[in-house]
Design a protein around this nucleic acid. Sequence first.
DNA 1: CTGAAAGCGCTTACAG
DNA 2: CTGAAAGCGCTTACAG
Lengths: 331, 331
Amino acid sequence: MATLKDVAKLACVDVSTVSRALNNTGYVHPDTKKRVYAAAKELGYHPNVMAQALRQGKRRTIGIIVPSFFLSVFAGIVTGINQEAQRRNYAVLLCNSGYDSAVEKECLNRLRSGFIDGLIIGPTGRNSRLIQDIQAAGTPVVQVIRDQIPRMNSIVADYENTACEAVKYLYRLGSRGIGFLGGNGQIVPFRDRYDGYRRAIRELGLEELTIPESFVGHTFEFGYHQTQELLFRYPQLDAIITSVDAQGLGALRMLKEQKKRVPDEVRVMSLTGHSIGAMLETSMTAMEIPAIEMGRSAVQMLLEEIDAPEDSRLTPKRLVFTAELVEREST
Amino acid sequence: MATLKDVAKLACVDVSTVSRALNNTGYVHPDTKKRVYAAAKELGYHPNVMAQALRQGKRRTIGIIVPSFFLSVFAGIVTGINQEAQRRNYAVLLCNSGYDSAVEKECLNRLRSGFIDGLIIGPTGRNSRLIQDIQAAGTPVVQVIRDQIPRMNSIVADYENTACEAVKYLYRLGSRGIGFLGGNGQIVPFRDRYDGYRRAIRELGLEELTIPESFVGHTFEFGYHQTQELLFRYPQLDAIITSVDAQGLGALRMLKEQKKRVPDEVRVMSLTGHSIGAMLETSMTAMEIPAIEMGRSAVQMLLEEIDAPEDSRLTPKRLVFTAELVEREST
DNA sequence: CTGAAAGCGCTTACAG
DNA sequence: CTGAAAGCGCTTACAG
């Protein structure tokens, strides 16, 4: 590949002049400039990003680590991140931790090695120390969806209220036996959703219908089996709130197998909607989360941090989005 | 961040010795080595990947460009690529072209600038020339799913046979009015699937039931509207084959709205299954594609190319996977 | 307006 | 077994 030197030789000037001409930094005589541009074009010159990065101490690259992106709100998050990063002319380095903290750790260690200007992460919750180290070493970090680490930038939704409102909505529709499928209680959003559910249940004078969690997963399978369990334990069950859409699919599937009519016998809704609900045979009501927009915001927040002087990074920022109730057939 | 120099100073040796010690290249006295390791550890030294890359002309980074990864086979592909890249200690730079060839072009131009050792792409079909240039300039390329560019490495499935077998399977079940939802005919897999469909229809002496395409999309909405059209035009319709799962969801949804029972009145199946079929209320039969495995293979093929001497790269490689029929409730 | 020089952080022949 | 030097491709004060 052609280098600055090649262009310089062809244009009969010094490399520094080429650099100035191409980057529009410092005066260059118009004629010279023209020659340089012509030479660059002729050689198909593209600057070597690694060298630029090394020299400038900037990489124009951000890293993302998400726990998954199949049938998950993180698919939308990643899409939004990509959109905004592209618009700002940043490259994106994507890692998928697969909900595995060991994998996440490896990703973090790879990324910290001078690769990225900033990091967006949906943490597993087990590497908080390492993430704080990275931030302390000068690489800004933004948490998305999961504000697992206190006092660190985050983009989240108001999970507690979302859950609370879902319960009240079902109550208004007439449901009195409202079950709840949660997730890993170590993870903030799941804990918050559960708190919101309990708060509403208490306020409305209802009974809490949950399964003490043995294993948990934010998956179809979890939704499927837990729904069976709920039906078995609580004959009065007439509504199910699931934390995420994938669990909701599991619930719908189990209800069909148990020949329970939705929504006549059991209503179903999800707290983390991301458009799949509209595509189902029985379309699913959900508190829809603006995932793409959240992804874009994450990039904006991160780039602000990157461009800010180090000492103004002290106060963590926090942006809270609101989920919107989208009614569909399942309620 | 600590640099080689810092470590060298602390260990009282030259930077070159530190480099040799840390990389295990060339003899270093055990005692020296120990001192170096200790110093590196104390300073929390991580090599600057950009500098290494610049020096070695290698980046240990591969680029991927996919047209989408929401509810698409590319979600699995990307997962597989990530897994294998991680195992081989390569970073992954992910771009989402969003089916937009202009976006794809930008991604390609960004990536070619010394960022990556190789490229895996599911092309939109409109930048073939540019992609060939990149390959010619020395960056190996592997196409996934879509072997859009002839004589260039690719990982695909046998789409033609897959479609053909699907028709024959439905025929065995008793269907005689078998409709087909395709996609952009410029894209090889969609063209091949259509060819396979037609071949089988001809062999079985049936009538082709398709909609001349005005606009096309590989989406839920496309499946939804085209199914309505099929029902309207062909009263004898008793089965629908969709090219991808998302279209299948659209078909199932429309059939429900039209009060057509699945599979009793109309059977439905998809040619590009990637596990979502099992999660549906009426679970959907599909020719399941081993997407994750294909993603892993793409990385393997790419790394072989990267490590191979330039002149042995002449013969393009092609790996064809076979889709597996997974029967579910929709047939 | 332009060139010569230093340096980003690393690796790698080459001496010794 | 170890150090000094050159160089990867770029940018950026500094002279002139």
